[in-house]
Design a protein around this nucleic acid. Structure first.
Lengths: 227, 227
DNA sequence: GTCTATATCGGGATAGAC
DNA sequence: GTCTATCCCGATATAGAC
C-alpha cells in the first residue's frame, strides 16, 4: 500500500475511534491496529497524537465551511439587495452539516457526531483551532441573519444560533442518545425526516417572541451598539 | 478531617476535574491532589475510578429528577383534570436544571455542564445507569406534553424534546463554547436572562408548525398509535 | 481511615535496521 | 516509508505499616 493510502487509513480509523471512545481513551495502538498499519506510522505521518487529532478535524471542517460560504454567496447573489429569508439561511448552514452527517459511508456521519461533542468541551489545543476555522463562517451567517431579522437584536440572534447548534448536535447524535430518553426506537436513519423536523423546530425557535428580559438590578441601561 | 469529609472532598474535586478534562484525561492523582486527600482514598471509599464516576452522577441526578417529579406532581394536582400548559411543563423540567446550573458555589453548574456532554456520548458503563435514572422522569414529562399538545404527534414531541435537551446543554456550556461562535463576550452569568432566552426559544420550537414529512418511498402508510 | 511504597500495566514516542 | 524493539513515563490499583 502506498504512503498516501496509509495516511488516509489512519485518519479514517482515528475518526471512528475518537468518535466512539473519545480522544484520551483512544490509543495509537488501537488506531494503527484498525487501520492495519504500523504503530510508528502515526508519528511518521503526523508527528504526534495531538497533530493527528487536529488533522482529523481540519480535513472535514474546511470542506464543510467552504461549502457553507459558497452556498451563502450564491443565496445572497440571487437575493440581490433584499435580505435572504431566515429559513434559507438556516437551510444552508445546517443543511450542509446534516447532509454531511447523512453520509454514512464516507465517514461524514461519524465526524459530525464527533464535532458536536467536541464543540462543548474543546481540549485546549483544539479550541483555538476550531475558533479559527469557524470565525469567518459564523461572522457571515450572523450578519445575514441580522439583516434577515431586523426586529431581533443581534445578541438574541447569537444566542439562538447557539441553541440551534445544540439542537443540531443532539439531532445528529440521534438514536444513540435518544434511547436514553425513550426506549421506543425512533428512526433516525431517515435523514429527510430528521432534517424536516429539525428545521421546523429551529425556525420556530428563531422566530419565537422575544423573551422579556428584566433589567439587572442596579445596572443602568446601556446604549446598545448599532448592529 | 473525618472520613465523611474525605468522601465529599473527593466527589467535589472529581466533578470539577471530570468537567474540565473529561473522564479519561483525569487521573486519580489529580483528583486526590485537588481534594488534598491521599491517593489510596479513592479506592478505599469508592472501589474504583469507574465507581467514582457513577457516584458523581448519582448524587446530583437523583436529586435533580426527584425535584422534577415533585414539581410536576404539584402542577398536575393544581390543574386537576385539564392538561397543564406546555410552557409550565418546560419551566419545570428545564427550570430545575437551569437553577441547578446557576448554582456556582454548590457545584451544580459544574455538574450540569458535565451532564450535558455525557448525554451524547455515555461511556458504556454510564449509559445504562443514566437510562435508569431518567426513564421514569422522561415518561412522565412526555405524557404530560402529549396531553398538553394533542395536535402534535407523540413522535414529534419526543424529537422536539430531544432537540430541547441539546439546546439546554449548549446553553449551559455557555460562553465557554460561545466564544468559538463569536468573540464578543456574551454574558452567560445572568441566569435569569439565559433562562428567559432559552425558554422562549424552546417554546417557539415546541409549538412550531409541523414539518412536512414526505412518505418514504415504497413503505405504505401505517396507522399511528393513538397518543 | 489514612498513609507510604510499590506492583503491574499500557500509554506515546523514537532509534535504527530494512 | 515501513518495520521491530525498546525507552520512559505515568496510569490504576493494592499491600501492609501506622
Amino acid at each position: 500500500m502506498a504512503e498516501f493510502d496509509t495516511r488516509l487509513r489512519i485518519l479514517d480509523a482515528a475518526e471512528v475511534l475518537f468518535t466512539e471512545h473519545g480522544f484520551e481513551a483512544t490509543t495509537l495502538r488501537q488506531i494503527t491496529g484498525a487501520a492495519a498499519v504500523n504503530l510508528a506510522a502515526v508519528n511518521y505521518h503526523f508527528g504526534s497524537k495531538e497533530a493527528l487529532i487536529r488533522e482529523v478535524f481540519r480535513r472535514r471542517l474546511t470542506w464543510l465551511n467552504q461549502q457553507r460560504l459558497k452556498e451563502l454567496d450564491r443565496l445572497e447573489a440571487e437575493a440581490g439587495d433584499s435580505p435572504v429569508k431566515p429559513s434559507r439561511i438556516l437551510e444552508v448552514f445546517f443543511g450542509v452539516a446534516l447532509r454531511m452527517a447523512a453520509d454514512t459511508e464516507g465517514g461524514g456521519r461519524t465526524f459530525m457526531r464527533l464535532l458536536g461533542r467536541t464543540y462543548t468541551k474543546p481540549s485546549e489545543f483544539v479550541s483555538g483551532f476550531l475558533a479559527g476555522e469557524y470565525a469567518a463562517v459564523i461572522a457571515r451567517f450572523k450578519a445575514a441573519l441580522i439583516r434577515a431579522l431586523p426586529n431581533v437584536p443581534g445578541e438574541e440572534i447569537l444566542w439562538r444560533f447557539h441553541f440551534m447548534l445544540g439542537a443540531m448536535s443532539y439531532a445528529i447524535s440521534g438514536a444513540d442518545a435518544l434511547h436514553i430518553v425513550d426506549e421506543a426506537a425512533l428512526d433516525d436513519g431517515d435523514t429527510e425526516a430528521l432534517y424536516a423536523r429539525l428545521m421546523s423546530f429551529m425556525l420556530g425557535g428563531l422566530r419565537a417572541p422575544l423573551p422579556v428580559l428584566r433589567r439587572k438590578s442596579a445596572k443602568p441601561a446601556r446604549v446598545r451598539k448599532v448592529a
